[in-house]
Design a protein around this nucleic acid. Structure first.
Lengths: 116, 116
DNA sequence: TTAGATACGGATAAATTTATCCGTAATTGG
DNA sequence: CCAATTACGGATAAATTTATCCGTATCTAA
């Protein structure tokens, strides 16, 4: 699917950039949070995040898998059933995401005037 | 400079996306961290972040100003002197950035195998 | 047997971000 | 005067990300 190599490398010296690489992507945090909240099936995720097309969610889910944040479980039963779950690494991300989300909420007032 | 309006809107419901809007940009976190660490002048920042061109740093500095994270001080003296400093809002970002950076450091080993 | 649900991915267009190149202007030190 | 330093920004190219459109396949229920 993607043996594509970036030409413009991202600086990774700092731990912060490692975080950024993992969560960058318009819908990734929503996906991580949904999965963490118990919405695990692809169709559920699409319904929870209706502004994103099905295709984009698929692509970003696969990137999260590639980065070791989530895992895909394909049930060998009919009708088709697939679920995603956080890996142990993915779970360690939850409190970090929560703290950045808290920052956003704490400053929503100031930020909303500044952004657009 | 930029009265450009995005056509693809970013979801802002969640506090986390507010954080992302502010720190997204390849060099922004480096810039915030440098300024926080006392490297305030444009030429210092360029020397500290040599992989980024002068132009890109300028653009991203201006975006940070627009988002209320840093402030520009132009000294009315010769030779020319300009400094950036964190706003109060920008300062609240420091512990959050530190926690995401800590996450990256804590998992650098796992991550480096996964990210290419 | 037809519609709607499940699920997946290639190909391409559009949007956005980042990089490169160009130019300006003033000052300092040789 | 000339080169190096300070500082800033427009215009465009290149890279990357996101969106849209197309197609596949199987199963269930009406």
């Amino acid at each position: 699917m993607s043996d594509y190599k970036k030409k413009l490398s991202v600086p990774l010296e700092c731990g912060l950039h490692l975080f950024m690489v993992v969560v960058n992507g318009k819908w990734k945090i929503s996906l991580i949070w949904c999965i963490h909240s118990g919405f695990k099936r692809p169709s559920e995720l699409q319904r929870k995040i209706p502004k994103a097309s099905r295709r984009v969610l698929d692509v970003q889910l696969n990137q999260l898998i590639g980065h070791g944040i989530i895992r895909k479980i394909t049930y060998d039963e009919l009708p088709l059933k697939v679920e995603y779950e956080l890996t142990p690494l993915g779970q360690t991300l939850i409190p970090v995401i929560a703290s950045t989300a808290q920052w956003g909420e704490d400053h929503r007032g100031e930020l909303e005037v500044l952004l657009r």
